[in-house]
Design a protein around this nucleic acid. Structure first.
Lengths: 342, 342
DNA sequence: TTTATTTGCTTAAACGTTTAACTAAAACAG
DNA sequence: CTGTTTTAGTTAAACGTTTAAGCAAATAAA
């Protein structure tokens, strides 16, 4: 190895010269065109290997008007749901030999809009995204769609954008979780949530309300606590304050990091889970079974959602546009553990 | 909005025609060249905005031979350390207005080598990577370096590759953790680890051995347990078997997911942590303080490692090559919690 | 006034591919 | 043995930028 004079970048021109054929012949031979004879093909392929030729991706993309690249746009990455979803996406992207650009919005609409502007540069053939918490204006999304780039939404979707959507049954999951708490004897259930993500958080909140009202429980507004979507100590204080004033005996936490904050708040107040208060959380963290106590979770099919999003995007790129504007709902699962024990 | 005829992709040619100037004038005006008069510049910039012009990234990259893109190559993403490191990298990439391609090796040398082949296509200007667990041959890495693409390693590095490296003090951290267990009264400490990553795992193992020998403890080979690097139930069984046969009173787990497996194994055997056995783990999981019991961790400076890796890569890209081949060691921190209480 | 310099723009080549259009030779049909 | 088709290549244009080189007009220097 490292014996070849690898110093000067080798391109098709150099390959062609070395083989005494035209550049077109090289190009066609490498793409296995019907135009080129079998022995010439072999000569070209062998020379390419020997000289360590790698085609220039950008020249290729420019000419073909296709980048073999997709973008993943998500709010955060230090989140089990999203990192598992990325694994699902990657499982498809890898076999398609595509490349993945990743953009983190940190839940900022401004960053999200800026990134969409960038994507109009032809950098990607398609986009898989989960919208930022405070995105309300969808013009940036529609503008990109107008340029012909397909967008598949997952989890945090937009109702008023025509597109493929992969979601999970948030309303139903919250409904089931609330009933589970009621069945476990809770009389006063609070919902700990954050601002934003109308598509999923309001569905979860509505599922919670629905469960309460079908059981004939009168639910006060004070039972919904809104935290910040940053994992920090302030949230612990907010939750602790709520626990003191409202004294709930059941908690539904709507996003991953609120599990930690809720547990810490209970710990501070020496509330025993599940004796004094029962807790269930929407989370995919693998540590759920070893928490103190093991946490009852609503487990989202993150990997499968990512996988299906990617699959549908590639279908679309391949011309199968029959699923445009369809919404695919994958079920979440309630995993009962000790934190909601009777 | 959406009032402009956005259907046909607008490029420099179209812009130039609309303004009755040459393409070169448009290009230079947009890049704020000294060649173009101030009022022409303004006209161009305004027209570009009005017509929603976005430069073609690949044409630009092809011509400039620079992609404004870096690659992150890591084994896994569903891992707190890596996702936090990505956040650190992103914090720099975002301000530089670069783009990030992400590649997951899933700890496979074959995938890693294949990806390096792809990167020779000029797709990226630089690489930040953590090597796969079973990578021993480094020729793919050196080959890419030869093409002039700088590579910054972080965490899982390679001794025999000349490059910038960002690591944490694995030897020392393990040494401190082991001493911490000894101070807490442990007499028989086991190391739970996985195969691979010689740069970090052997350092951790050596730190462990060193601590034992300086304290004059004779440590048998049976005290090191090797698990698989997949989070699964088999690991729980392996650990449980070890706990039964060797009966350690202290455990050091060297990678994140082994914390969960270890806790589950102890749970199965009804071993009380920390009374019967004390546990410390290398992990960045935010749930550590709410585990049962709260877990003593060695917290790696993931975000800062990522940030510094990116900073050094950009320094290098900007021509500041004075740090080439330097290794930067950032300290990890032992966070003592109940799992190692005396 | 003449010459040199600066200003503001244009022309055209280049980046490394892909591909439509062409061609010369060989194979085949009638 | 002519006319058509097939085979195996070539030439050149195109993708959308950037930039070196050139040039006319305006300004400055002599």
């Amino acid at each position: 190895m490292a014996n070849e004079p690898q110093s000067d970048k080798i391109n098709m021109k150099a390959l062609a010269k070395a083989l005494n054929v035209s550049i077109a012949t090289v190009s066609k031979a490498l793409r296995d065109s019907h135009d080129i004879g079998p022995e010439t093909k072999l000569r070209v392929i062998e020379a390419a290997k020997k000289l360590n030729y790698v085609p220039n991706a950008y020249a290729s993309s420019l000419r073909k008007k296709a980048s073999n690249t997709i973008a993943i746009i998500i709010p955060e990455i230090a989140d089990s749901f999203f990192s598992q979803a990325i694994n699902g996406i990657e499982s498809i992207v890898a076999v398609k030999k595509y490349h993945t650009l990743i953009y983190l919005t940190h839940d900022s609409y401004e960053r999200e809009a800026y990134m969409f502007g960038e994507l109009a540069s032809g950098r990607v053939d398609g986009v898989i995204m989960s919208v930022a918490s405070n995105t309300e204006d969808t013009s940036h999304i529609k503008a990109l769609q107008q340029t012909g780039i397909p967008i598949v939404f997952f989890d945090r979707v937009f109702d008023d954008v025509r597109s493929i959507k992969i979601t999970t049954d948030d309303f139903n999951s919250a409904y089931i979780a609330t009933n589970h708490l009621l069945d476990a004897g809770c009389k006063n259930i609070s919902l700990i949530t954050i601002k934003g993500y109308p598509s999923i958080l309001s569905a979860r909140e509505q599922g919670y309300h629905k469960a309460l009202s079908t059981r004939g429980i009168n639910h006060k507004e004070s039972s919904v606590v809104t935290c910040s979507n940053k994992y920090n100590n302030e949230n612990v204080d907010v939750i602790a304050a709520h626990l003191i004033t409202v004294k709930p005996d059941g908690i539904i936490a709507t996003v991953e990091h609120l599990a930690t904050s809720t547990y810490l708040a209970c710990g501070e107040l020496k509330l025993n889970i599940p004796k004094d208060i029962k807790v269930v959380c929407f989370t995919n963290q693998i540590t759920a079974p070893i928490l103190n106590p093991p946490l009852t979770t609503i487990l989202q099919p993150a990997y499968d959602m990512g996988k299906q999003a990617a699959q549908l995007l590639f279908d679309h790129l391949a011309g199968r546009t029959d699923n445009v504007n369809k919404e695919f709902v994958l079920p979440s699962k309630l995993i009962v553990r000790e934190s909601t024990a009777f």
